[in-house]
């Protein structure tokens, strides 16, 4: 096991002694800080939040009365109605984007940047060894190939975790600095077992982060697999980022016509669809998506492992 720990240290050394890595880390910090500044300068306070919530409630009611909507969406609207009523009754203002929690919540959207950077690192980790020619000296050590591959994969995931923590921390600090922390006690309204309950915002934000990570893990694994199978970093980065940004759109169009689209990877990566009550294909559930993601995860890893294990190194 100490051997495996050393392998991860080796991989980390190869990640963090490169300029490109620090460029990506710097860029992420910059975006998280700039985001807060943009929100600060462009946000306009609503005149009366009560009026807006009332208007929203009315439109929810109108939609519910139309009748020809799906059951999941109906449930979702009913929940939102209850939450809005609770809000008005107990005088709880919705979380605005120019608050500490509001900004932290929207920073979850920047996880796609973390995904992009992790894809770059994962795609490079196996393919570069081949293009540098260092794979030969790497594989003539008393360590089996599976362990070496796993250490590379773990190092990429550790990089992702590092970036997530950094994103969260920088967003929290810049949010606190620009918007203040007076609103930190404001609760998050959740709907549980038929009633509205007040919860801490931190759980809500962490949940948003966690849901966005499905994409991150899947695309990193995908890029890693392509990198191992084709030994080509550009191809791996290209395919993975293309899929990351275009995949959901294509899947969305397919899902409008075909029921089988629900088995596609991108129909399942966006787990927050279940929080919005609008799954891509009617009848999909959170557990179905998690099962599908696990399946894809296993297939990608098995492919990478099998091919890396068997390959003749002729680079």
């Amino acid at each position: 096991m100490s051997n495996f720990f050393s392998l991860i240290r080796n991989e980390n050394m190869k990640i963090y002694y490169r300029f490109g890595t620090w460029f990506m880390i710097g860029l992420l910090v910059l975006v998280a800080v700039a985001g807060a500044i943009i929100v600060k300068t462009s946000y306009r306070e609503p005149t009366d939040w009560r009026k807006e919530v009332t208007a929203e409630t009315a439109s929810f009611k109108a939609s519910l009365e139309e009748g020809n909507i799906s059951k999941t969406y109906k449930d979702y609207l009913t929940q939102q109605l209850k939450i809005n009523e609770y809000r008005l009754k107990h005088d709880i203002k919705p979380i605005a984007s120019n608050t500490f929690w509001g900004y932290l919540e929207s920073s979850a959207g920047m996880i796609s940047l973390v995904t992009l950077f992790t894809i770059i690192v994962a795609a490079g980790s196996v393919a570069s060894e081949f293009s540098w020619g260092t794979i030969k000296l790497l594989l003539i050590r008393p360590t089996n190939r599976a362990k070496i591959l796993l250490s590379k994969y773990m190092a990429a995931l550790l990089f992702a975790i590092g970036l997530l923590v950094l994103l969260f921390a920088v967003s929290a600090i810049s949010g606190a600095a620009l918007f203040g922390i007076e609103t930190i006690k404001e609760p998050y309204l959740a709907y549980q077992n038929g009633e509205v309950v007040e919860k801490s915002m931190i759980w809500y934000v962490l949940q948003m982060y966690a849901l966005n990570c499905a994409d991150l893990v899947m695309m990193t694994t995908f890029a890693f697999m392509i990198s191992t199978v084709f030994r080509n970093q550009s191809l791996a980065i290209g395919l993975a980022t293309f899929s990351l940004f275009i995949g959901p759109q294509i899947t969305y169009f397919l899902a409008m016509k075909f029921d089988w689209a629900k088995y596609l990877l991108f129909a399942n990566t966006n787990l927050s669809q279940y929080l919005d009550g609008m799954p891509m294909v009617e009848g999909m559930t959170m557990s179905f998506s998690i099962m599908m993601l696990l399946l894809y995860f296993l297939v990608f890893n098995a492919l990478a492992w099998l091919i890396f294990q068997k390959r003749d190194i002729a680079a």
């Binding site: 051997n3 050393s6 392998l7 240290r9 080796n10 190869k14 050590r141 008393p142 360590t143």
Partner: peptide, 8 residues
């Protein structure tokens, strides 16, 4: 160091 870590 990298290669040293790979052999006990």
């Amino acid at each position: 160091l990298h290669y040293a870590r790979m052999t006990s």
